Amino acid sequence: MQGVVKVNSALNMRSGPGSNYGVIGTLRNNDKVEIIKEVDGAYEIRFNGKVGYASKSYITIVN
Results as ranks from 00 to 15, higher is better:
residue 1 M to K: 11
residue 1 M to W: 13
residue 1 M to N: 07
residue 1 M to P: 06
residue 1 M to L: 13
residue 2 Q to A: 10
residue 2 Q to Y: 14
residue 2 Q to N: 09
residue 2 Q to R: 11
residue 2 Q to F: 14
residue 2 Q to P: 09
residue 3 G to S: 02
residue 3 G to H: 02
residue 3 G to W: 03
residue 3 G to E: 01
residue 3 G to Q: 01
residue 3 G to D: 01
residue 3 G to C: 09
residue 3 G to M: 02
residue 4 V to H: 05
residue 4 V to E: 05
residue 4 V to P: 01
residue 4 V to K: 06
residue 4 V to G: 01
residue 4 V to W: 06
residue 4 V to R: 07
residue 4 V to S: 04
residue 5 V to D: 01
residue 5 V to A: 03
residue 5 V to F: 02
residue 5 V to H: 01
residue 5 V to T: 02
residue 5 V to C: 06
residue 5 V to L: 03
residue 6 K to F: 07
residue 6 K to P: 01
residue 6 K to Q: 10
residue 6 K to R: 13
residue 6 K to L: 08
residue 6 K to M: 09
residue 7 V to W: 05
residue 7 V to Y: 07
residue 8 N to E: 14
residue 8 N to Q: 13
residue 8 N to A: 13
residue 8 N to I: 11
residue 8 N to L: 12
residue 8 N to T: 14
residue 8 N to K: 15
residue 8 N to F: 11
residue 8 N to H: 13
residue 9 S to D: 13
residue 9 S to V: 13
residue 9 S to H: 14
residue 10 A to C: 15
residue 10 A to S: 13
residue 10 A to G: 11
residue 10 A to D: 12
residue 10 A to K: 14
residue 10 A to T: 15
residue 10 A to H: 15
residue 11 L to C: 15
residue 11 L to G: 05
residue 11 L to Y: 05
residue 11 L to T: 10
residue 11 L to K: 11
residue 11 L to I: 15
residue 11 L to E: 07
residue 12 N to W: 12
residue 12 N to K: 14
residue 12 N to H: 15
residue 12 N to V: 15
residue 12 N to I: 15
residue 12 N to F: 15
residue 12 N to D: 15
residue 12 N to R: 11
residue 12 N to G: 10
residue 13 M to Y: 07
residue 13 M to R: 01
residue 13 M to Q: 02
residue 14 R to G: 04
residue 14 R to A: 07
residue 14 R to S: 08
residue 14 R to V: 11
residue 14 R to Q: 09
residue 15 S to V: 08
residue 15 S to M: 06
residue 15 S to N: 09
residue 15 S to P: 04
residue 15 S to A: 12
residue 15 S to C: 12
residue 16 G to L: 03
residue 16 G to K: 05
residue 16 G to C: 07
residue 16 G to Y: 03
residue 16 G to H: 07
residue 16 G to V: 03
residue 17 P to W: 07
residue 17 P to D: 04
residue 17 P to T: 05
residue 17 P to R: 04
residue 17 P to K: 04
residue 17 P to I: 08
residue 17 P to C: 08
residue 18 G to N: 12
residue 18 G to T: 11
residue 18 G to R: 05
residue 18 G to C: 09
residue 18 G to Q: 06
residue 18 G to I: 02
residue 18 G to V: 02
residue 18 G to A: 07
residue 19 S to C: 15
residue 19 S to H: 12
residue 19 S to W: 12
residue 19 S to R: 13
residue 19 S to Q: 12
residue 19 S to I: 13
residue 20 N to K: 12
residue 20 N to L: 08
residue 20 N to M: 11
residue 20 N to G: 11
residue 20 N to Y: 09
residue 20 N to E: 14
residue 20 N to A: 11
residue 20 N to T: 11
residue 21 Y to W: 09
residue 21 Y to A: 15
residue 21 Y to S: 15
residue 21 Y to T: 13
residue 21 Y to E: 10
residue 21 Y to R: 05
residue 21 Y to V: 04
residue 22 G to I: 14
residue 22 G to V: 15
residue 22 G to F: 12
residue 22 G to R: 14
residue 22 G to K: 15
residue 23 V to R: 04
residue 23 V to G: 02
residue 23 V to D: 03
residue 23 V to I: 13
residue 23 V to N: 05
residue 23 V to C: 08
residue 23 V to K: 07
residue 24 I to G: 02
residue 24 I to A: 03
residue 24 I to V: 12
residue 24 I to C: 06
residue 24 I to F: 02
residue 25 G to W: 09
residue 25 G to D: 13
residue 25 G to S: 08
residue 25 G to H: 11
residue 25 G to E: 13
residue 25 G to M: 12
residue 25 G to C: 15
residue 26 T to E: 08
residue 26 T to C: 13
residue 26 T to D: 03
residue 26 T to W: 08
residue 26 T to H: 09
residue 26 T to P: 04
residue 27 L to W: 01
residue 27 L to S: 00
residue 27 L to V: 04
residue 27 L to K: 00
residue 27 L to A: 02
residue 27 L to H: 00
residue 27 L to T: 01
residue 28 R to Q: 12
residue 28 R to W: 08
residue 28 R to L: 11
residue 28 R to K: 12
residue 28 R to E: 09
residue 29 N to D: 09
residue 29 N to L: 07
residue 29 N to K: 07
residue 29 N to P: 09
residue 29 N to W: 06
residue 29 N to I: 05
residue 30 N to P: 02
residue 30 N to D: 10
residue 30 N to Y: 07
residue 30 N to L: 10
residue 30 N to C: 12
residue 30 N to R: 07
residue 30 N to F: 08
residue 30 N to E: 08
residue 30 N to S: 06
residue 31 D to T: 07
residue 31 D to C: 05
residue 31 D to S: 06
residue 31 D to V: 04
residue 31 D to Y: 05
residue 32 K to H: 11
residue 32 K to G: 05
residue 32 K to F: 12
residue 32 K to D: 04
residue 32 K to R: 13
residue 32 K to Q: 11
residue 33 V to H: 01
residue 33 V to F: 03
residue 33 V to W: 01
residue 33 V to Y: 01
residue 33 V to R: 00
residue 33 V to K: 00
residue 33 V to G: 00
residue 34 E to T: 12
residue 34 E to F: 12
residue 34 E to L: 11
residue 34 E to P: 01
residue 35 I to M: 02
residue 35 I to F: 02
residue 35 I to Y: 02
residue 35 I to S: 00
residue 35 I to V: 10
residue 35 I to N: 00
residue 36 I to V: 09
residue 36 I to H: 03
residue 36 I to T: 05
residue 36 I to D: 01
residue 36 I to Y: 05
residue 36 I to K: 03
residue 36 I to Q: 03
residue 37 K to L: 07
residue 37 K to C: 12
residue 37 K to S: 14
residue 37 K to E: 05
residue 37 K to F: 05
residue 37 K to W: 05
residue 38 E to C: 10
residue 38 E to K: 03
residue 38 E to A: 08
residue 38 E to I: 08
residue 38 E to Y: 04
residue 38 E to W: 04
residue 38 E to N: 03
residue 38 E to H: 04
residue 39 V to F: 09
residue 39 V to D: 04
residue 39 V to H: 09
residue 39 V to C: 10
residue 39 V to N: 04
residue 40 D to Y: 11
residue 40 D to T: 07
residue 40 D to S: 10
residue 40 D to K: 10
residue 40 D to N: 13
residue 41 G to R: 05
residue 41 G to I: 05
residue 41 G to W: 11
residue 42 A to S: 14
residue 42 A to Q: 15
residue 42 A to F: 15
residue 42 A to V: 13
residue 42 A to I: 09
residue 42 A to H: 15
residue 43 Y to M: 03
residue 43 Y to A: 00
residue 43 Y to R: 00
residue 43 Y to G: 00
residue 43 Y to L: 04
residue 44 E to S: 03
residue 44 E to P: 00
residue 44 E to F: 13
residue 44 E to N: 07
residue 44 E to V: 10
residue 44 E to Y: 13
residue 44 E to D: 00
residue 45 I to H: 00
residue 45 I to G: 00
residue 45 I to R: 00
residue 45 I to S: 00
residue 45 I to W: 00
residue 45 I to N: 00
residue 45 I to K: 00
residue 46 R to F: 11
residue 46 R to M: 11
residue 46 R to E: 07
residue 46 R to Y: 11
residue 46 R to P: 01
residue 46 R to H: 08
residue 46 R to A: 08
residue 46 R to G: 04
residue 46 R to C: 12
residue 46 R to D: 05
residue 47 F to W: 11
residue 47 F to T: 03
residue 47 F to N: 03
residue 47 F to D: 01
residue 47 F to L: 04
residue 47 F to V: 07
residue 47 F to M: 04
residue 48 N to D: 11
residue 48 N to G: 11
residue 48 N to Q: 12
residue 48 N to C: 11
residue 48 N to T: 03
residue 48 N to Y: 06
residue 48 N to F: 08
residue 48 N to R: 11
residue 48 N to M: 12
residue 49 G to T: 05
residue 49 G to H: 06
residue 49 G to W: 03
residue 49 G to E: 06
residue 49 G to P: 00
residue 49 G to R: 04
residue 49 G to S: 06
residue 50 K to W: 06
residue 50 K to V: 13
residue 50 K to N: 08
residue 50 K to S: 08
residue 50 K to M: 14
residue 50 K to H: 08
residue 51 V to K: 08
residue 51 V to I: 13
residue 51 V to A: 06
residue 51 V to L: 10
residue 51 V to N: 06
residue 51 V to P: 03
residue 51 V to S: 07
residue 51 V to G: 03
residue 51 V to C: 08
residue 51 V to D: 03
residue 51 V to Q: 09
residue 52 G to N: 00
residue 52 G to L: 02
residue 52 G to T: 02
residue 52 G to V: 02
residue 52 G to E: 01
residue 52 G to W: 02
residue 52 G to A: 05
residue 53 Y to N: 01
residue 53 Y to I: 02
residue 53 Y to C: 02
residue 54 A to V: 15
residue 54 A to N: 01
residue 54 A to S: 04
residue 54 A to E: 01
residue 54 A to Y: 02
residue 54 A to M: 04
residue 54 A to W: 02
residue 55 S to M: 11
residue 55 S to A: 12
residue 55 S to D: 15
residue 55 S to H: 10
residue 55 S to Q: 11
residue 55 S to E: 15
residue 56 K to V: 10
residue 56 K to N: 05
residue 56 K to M: 10
residue 56 K to E: 03
residue 56 K to R: 07
residue 56 K to C: 08
residue 57 S to V: 14
residue 57 S to E: 15
residue 57 S to P: 08
residue 57 S to C: 15
residue 57 S to T: 13
residue 57 S to R: 14
residue 58 Y to K: 08
residue 58 Y to T: 05
residue 58 Y to F: 13
residue 58 Y to R: 05
residue 58 Y to E: 07
residue 58 Y to S: 09
residue 59 I to W: 01
residue 59 I to V: 07
residue 59 I to Q: 00
residue 59 I to T: 00
residue 59 I to F: 06
residue 59 I to Y: 01
residue 59 I to R: 00
residue 59 I to E: 01
residue 60 T to L: 13
residue 60 T to E: 13
residue 60 T to V: 14
residue 60 T to C: 14
residue 60 T to Y: 14
residue 60 T to M: 14
residue 60 T to H: 14
residue 61 I to M: 08
residue 61 I to N: 03
residue 61 I to S: 04
residue 62 V to L: 12
residue 62 V to Q: 09
residue 62 V to T: 11
residue 62 V to S: 09
residue 63 N to D: 12
residue 63 N to Y: 11
residue 63 N to S: 13
residue 63 N to C: 13
residue 63 N to I: 11
residue 63 N to H: 12
residue 63 N to R: 10
